[in-house]
């Protein structure tokens, strides 16, 4: 079972992402409410996948992504973006994010996004 670290400053979002992931057969091994904690937890838990919110206090998602990529080039980080954050997402992709999902999630949000992949 793939392990996931959820990074989001809103507890509600963390909970809904957790529910969706668990329903689809992922194991959520940790949660972080900002970028600083995320980097720390990533190093500690070494999860297979990270879902990374973009707008957060104390190190935003983009900075956290860069910090993690610097420490682990193979990290699989997925950005969680809101509509209208195209420029940030683009920056994230250039900095090594493996993909992104857009909230609010439409139907079947996290069920099949990486079905063909060996990584996921």
């Amino acid at each position: 079972m793939k392990t996931v670290l959820i990074v989001d400053d809103a507890a509600f979002m963390r909970l809904s992402i957790r529910k969706m992931l668990e329903k689809n057969g992922y194991e959520v091994v940790g949660e972080a409410e900002n970028g600083l904690v995320a980097v720390e937890k990533y190093m500690e838990l070494q999860p297979d996948i990270v879902t990374m919110d973009i707008t957060m206090k104390d190190m935003n998602g983009l900075e956290a992504l860069k910090a993690i990529m610097e420490r682990d080039k193979k990290a699989n980080i997925i950005m969680v973006s809101a509509m209208g954050q195209e420029a940030m997402v683009k920056d994230a992709v250039l900095s090594g994010a493996k993909g992104f999902i857009v909230k609010p999630f439409r139907k079947r949000p996290l069920s099949r996004p990486w079905r063909n992949s060996k990584v996921w």
Binding site: S81, M83, E86, V89, K90, V93, L94, A97, G99, F100, V102, R106, K107, R108, R112, P113
Partner: peptide, 17 residues
């Protein structure tokens, strides 16, 4: 891309990247 994937242009950009 899957229907409802959203921001398809940025996804395409990611593919090129």
């Amino acid at each position: 891309f899957d229907e409802g994937a959203q921001m398809e242009n940025i996804r395409a950009f990611g593919v090129l990247n």
